[in-house]
Every structure is written in structure tokens, then in C-alpha cells.
Amino acid sequence: MVFQRNEGQEQDEILQNRFTSYLLAAVHRRRAQYIDEEVKAQKISSLMEERTMDSTFDLEEEALSEIPLYMRLQNEKLFWALSTLTERERYVFFACALEEKDYEKLATELGLSYKGVAAIYYRAIQKIKKKMKEELL
């Protein structure tokens, strides 16, 4: 079927023209809406970019100002508590808490059983807690 311009005389032709103009209006409206949506999406994405840039800046600021202060306050107590641990306890504590190694790896590394490492870690934590409480008192 070929789309041809008709005379608009017959009933059927009138109907077809009516449908065509109806559809044309809808198509134009959809196109305008689509452009609007795209502009909005661009605005939002650019806003989001600004946000993330802001937040990374905030994070950096936090890392530079807040955390070191907090660490410094805690460190004296913590350092003292850590100094009372044995060499092995300290190693296990740092490996678990900071490097996030699992007990199994540590066990093979140190030639201990899984439970042995867990016990050392637990004991180290208990010692640190105890020492830090002592300091507070």
C-alpha cells in the first residue's frame, strides 16, 4: 500500500486524513517530550557528577582532618595496649584486623591450627580491651 495524498472527498478519505493528523500531532508531542526527557536526564547526570565530585572532596577532607585526629587520640592508649602483647599476638591481631587475612591462611603461615589462630586473636583482643579499660580507670 502506498501512502498517497487523497482528495479528502470520500468518507473514507476524510477518516484517513483525520487519523493522519491525529497521529501527526501525537508524533510531534512524543518527539518534544523525548527531547525534554533527554535534557532533564543530562541535567540530572551533570548534577550527579557534581555531587560525586563534591563527595570525593568531602571524603578527602575527612581523611585528612577527622580520622587522623581520632586516631591520634586513640593511638596512645592503643599503642600502650599493643606493646603489652606478645610478638605473635600482635602479628595475628594486625593480620586479622588490618590486612583482613582469614584464619586459615594465617594458620598455614604460622604452622598452627585454625582454632589456635582464632584463640590467639581472641586473646589479643581481650588483652587490648582490658589494657584500654585500665588506662581509662
Binding site: 500500500m1 501512502f3 493522519t20 508524533v27 510531534h28 512524543r30 518527539r31 523525548y34
Partner: peptide, 13 residues
Amino acid sequence: EQYKPMLIKGSIL
């Protein structure tokens, strides 16, 4: 099929 050209024309950005 009949209205494809119109739809295509309305899809140009």
C-alpha cells in the same frame, strides 16, 4: 508500513 515515513520523520533529532 503506511505511516513509517511519518514516524521516521518524527524520530530525527
